[in-house]
Design a protein around this nucleic acid. Structure first.
Lengths: 204, 204
DNA sequence: GCTCCGTATTTTGGATCCAATATTGAAAAT
DNA sequence: ATTTTCAATATTGGATCCAAAATACGGAGC
C-alpha cells in the first residue's frame, strides 16, 4: 500500500503541489484513512509530501534550489558509497551491476521509460549497497525518491537515454579496474548531466 | 506529543532495545493509539525506532558499526554545511553562535548534563543553519538524534565537558576569522573525540 | 523432565465514528 | 459593486471498536 502510494507520487501520477484528499485517496487505495495517514507520515519523513496541521498533506514540490541541494548532497554521499563499495567489490557484485546495465540498455533501446528508470535505479543502488553502509544507502535512496517524479521526464528524451547508457559503461569500466577515483568522476558527470537536463523541467 | 516521545527516546528514558507497548505508552502520553502510531512512523523514518509488521516498534539500538557509520556520514555532511555556512556567515550569526557557546560553558561549569546537551546542540545547529541548505541541516539533525540517547552519558564525565568547551572555542576562533578549513578540522577532532568516548558506552 | 501442540490472552492492524478546525458560499452592510 | 460576517460544508484529528496476528500459557504425549 505504502509502495503503491510512493509509486503514485514518484511516477508523477499525483502531481507535485496537488493537495491530498485523504478520503478519496483511501477509497482509491482500498484502505481506510488510518493506515493511509501512517503511510503519509513516512512519506513526509522522506520528503515526498509536505504537511500542515489541520490543512493536510500535499505532494512536495521541488524548487530549483531544492534540486541543486539534493544533487549536491547526493554527490557527497554517493562518493563515499562508491569508494567504500569499490574497496570491497567482488566479481559477483560486479556481475549483478552488469546485469542491471544489461536491463538499462535493453530498456533504452526499446524506449521504455518506466523500465529505464527502474533498471537505472537498480544499477546504482546495487553498487551503493556494496558499500555495506546501510544507513548511507538508505539516505541516498530517499534522496533519489525526492526527484523521481521528474526522472521519468528525463528519460523521455532518446538522447538522454543514449547518454545514460554511455555513462554507465564508463562507470562499469572503472569499476572493473577497481579505479575508485575514476568511478567517482564518471558518476559526477552522470549526475551533472541529469541536473542540467532536469532544471528546465522544474519551472513548469 | 511527538516531541515528548522523541525526548523520551533521545534522553534514554525509553531504553534502546525496549519494545514499545502502544497501549501503555498512549495512556502515558494521554492520547489514543492512532496519533501515537503516526508519531512512531515519523520516528521510524528518523531511525529512532525500528518496526516489524505485526510485532510492533522497538527503541532502536545502535551497534558499533552503526555509530561509526553515523559519525562518518555526519563528517561528510557537516563539512559541507560548515563550508557553506562560513561563506555566508554574518556577524549576527556569529553572535548567536557565541551566545550558544556561553550557555555551553555555563552548563559545563554547573555540571548540568541536560542543559549541556541542548546548548551544545544549539551551538552546532545554529552554525549549520547558516549554510542555507535546509535539507542538509535536516539530515544532520536526524543523524544527531540517533545518537542522542547516548550523548547524555558522554556529558556525564566532567573531563568531557571541559574538552567540549575547549574544542568549541577553537571552532569559534576559526569562525571569527572565516577560516573554513580550520573550522572543519576542529569539528573533525571534536567529533572524533566524541566517537571514541561513546564507543565503550555502546557495548552495554 | 522435556517437547510439542492447541487454546487463551495479549498486542497490533484496520474500520468506523465523532469532534475540531478550516474552507466555502451566501447574505447583509457599506 | 465590494467587502465583511456568519452559517453550511468539507476535511482533518482523534477515540473507540472490531479483526487478525503473535505471544504466552497449559496440558497431553513421549
Amino acid at each position: 500500500m505504502l509502495g503503491e502510494l510512493r509509486r503514485a507520487i514518484t511516477t508523477g501520477r499525483l502531481r507535485p503541489g496537488a493537495p491530498i484528499r485523504q478520503d478519496a485517496l483511501a477509497e482509491e487505495l482500498q484502505v481506510s484513512r488510518v493506515p493511509l495517514r501512517e503511510a503519509l507520515k513516512t512519506l513526509e519523513g522522506e520528503g515526498l509530501v509536505t504537511y500542515q496541521a489541520h490543512k493536510g498533506y500535499c505532494v512536495a514540490v521541488l524548487s530549483l534550489d531544492d534540486l541543486r541541494e539534493v544533487y549536491r548532497i547526493r554527490q557527497l554521499l554517493e562518493e563515499e558509497a562508491v569508494r567504500a563499495a569499490v574497496a570491497r567489490l567482488t566479481d559477483a557484485d560486479l556481475a549483478r551491476i552488469e546485469a542491471a546495465q544489461h536491463d538499462v540498455e535493453h530498456a533504452a533501446a526499446a524506449g521504455d521509460v518506466l523500465a529505464m528508470a527502474t533498471a537505472n535505479r537498480t544499477f546504482h543502488m546495487t553498487l551503493f549497497d556494496c558499500a555495506a553502509m546501510p544507513r548511507l544507502a538508505r539516505l541516498i535512496r530517499t534522496l533519489w525518491d525526492t526527484t523521481d517524479a521528474y526522472r521519468s521526464m528525463y528519460y523521455g528524451a532518446a538522447g538522454n537515454r543514449e547518454r545514460v547508457v554511455e555513462e554507465h559503461r564508463a562507470t562499469l569500466d572503472a569499476l572493473r579496474r577497481r579505479a575508485a577515483d575514476e568511478a567517482v568522476r564518471t558518476l559526477d558527470v552522470h549526475r551533472e548531466h541529469a541536473v542540467t537536463e532536469l532544471e528546465p523541467l522544474l519551472d513548469a
